[in-house]
Amino acid sequence: MSSFNTTLKGGFILMGFSDWPQLEHIFFVFISMFYILTIFGNFTIITISRMDQRLQTPMYFFLNNLSFLDLCYTTSIVPQLLVNISGIDKTMSYAGCMTQFFIVLLLGGTECMLLVVMAFDRYVAVCHPLHYTSIMHPLLCHALAISSWVGGLVNSLTQTSLIMTIPLCGHHLNHFFCEMLVLLKLACEDTGGTEANLFVAGAVILVCPVALILGTYAHIAHAVLKIKSRSGRRKALGTCGSHLTVVFLFYGSAMYTYLQPVHVYSGSEGKFAALFYTIITPMLNPLIYTLRNKDVKGALCKVLGRDTSTT
């Protein structure tokens, strides 16, 4: 317990990528570029969605929420990472670590729930197109968005409370942010029960949404097969392809990281997996939706002052 008290006072040293000191400068440059692109891309999505009347629909309302989440999620990790890599300061207080842990889980859990909501939106659009505007009423859209945040909050409170009950020994975190499995490796006592509870909480926030999304898309696929027109099928699939790509990128990396036992967790692999879901995926999301969406590209050209009527 004395080690735990020391940790409370002295905090942690984030090891980051100090295992590869020759690569730290390269990491700094590329992560800075990716972070700038993430901010620019997601901010652009939010801006054009609000400026163009054609994008005042439930689909883009949820896309705005996703972009806002990605901005907050990346910002909760990357600035600290850049300071760490630059060598200016590799320390973090216990309170700061738990705060970051809580925020990351809150935003990540909210995104898990929001992707389910977006799948439901696509289900209504494809399977019930004539009733889409009446079903996806603004009140329902706001209620679904708020429910996503509440679900993320409950998940974050649950897992943060469990982590804070564990006495920790040592100061060195072999990661670039306060990540759950790395914290569990510092436990001073057996964490079998807590680890099981955390695994169940992680499975609920990851596996259950994936199951709902897959079930939703099974119904969408069945409806698409009934569409006789090839152009109609292409349009229906086009509205879902971007969302499915985002789901695959986000859940794939998150499940790979969190649904594994602590004793098989590899710090090196974990860092690179974390780079993917904390930096790469938020950066790619605006590109995925923009490149596959004529409405977004048209709105962007309109904002930039280009006439697309002849293209």
Rank of each mutant, 00 (worst) to 15 (best):
M1A: 11
M1T: 08
F4I: 02
T7L: 14
T7C: 13
G11E: 04
L14W: 05
L14V: 05
G16D: 07
S18G: 00
Q22L: 04
Q22G: 00
I26V: 12
F27D: 03
V29S: 04
F30K: 05
F34G: 12
Y35G: 07
L37R: 06
L37N: 12
L37Y: 13
I39F: 15
N42V: 13
F43H: 09
T44I: 12
R54C: 10
T57V: 15
M59G: 13
L63W: 03
N64C: 14
N65V: 03
L66K: 00
L66A: 13
L69Q: 08
L71N: 12
I77N: 09
V78R: 02
V78C: 07
V78K: 04
P79I: 03
P79F: 00
Q80C: 00
L82T: 05
L82S: 03
N84E: 10
S86V: 00
S86A: 05
I88Q: 09
G96R: 08
T99I: 11
I103E: 06
L107T: 02
L107F: 13
L107E: 01
L115C: 08
V116Q: 01
M118E: 10
A119R: 11
F120R: 15
Y123P: 14
V124E: 04
V124F: 10
V124C: 12
A125E: 10
C127V: 14
L130W: 06
H131K: 15
T133Y: 10
I135M: 09
P138G: 08
C141F: 03
H142V: 06
A143T: 13
A143I: 11
S148Q: 09
T158S: 14
Q159Y: 00
T165Y: 03
L168R: 01
L168Q: 06
G170Q: 07
F176C: 03
C178T: 11
E179F: 09
L181H: 13
L183W: 06
L186V: 08
E189I: 09
G192K: 04
G193K: 08
A196P: 08
N197G: 13
V200I: 15
A203F: 10
L206K: 11
L206I: 12
L206E: 04
P209M: 07
A211E: 03
L212Y: 06
T216C: 14
V224M: 05
L225M: 12
K226M: 10
S231C: 02
R233Y: 02
R233Q: 10
K235I: 05
A236H: 08
G238I: 00
G241W: 00
T245L: 09
V246Q: 02
V247A: 07
L249E: 00
F250C: 06
A254D: 05
Y258L: 15
S266H: 03
K271E: 03
F272D: 05
F272S: 00
L275Q: 03
L275Y: 09
L275D: 03
Y277G: 02
Y277C: 11
I280M: 11
I280K: 02
P282G: 10
M283E: 04
L284S: 04
I288G: 01
R292A: 07
N293S: 15
N293M: 05
K294R: 13
G298S: 14
A299L: 12
L300T: 13
L300G: 15
K302N: 13
L304Y: 11
G305L: 05
R306S: 09
T308L: 07
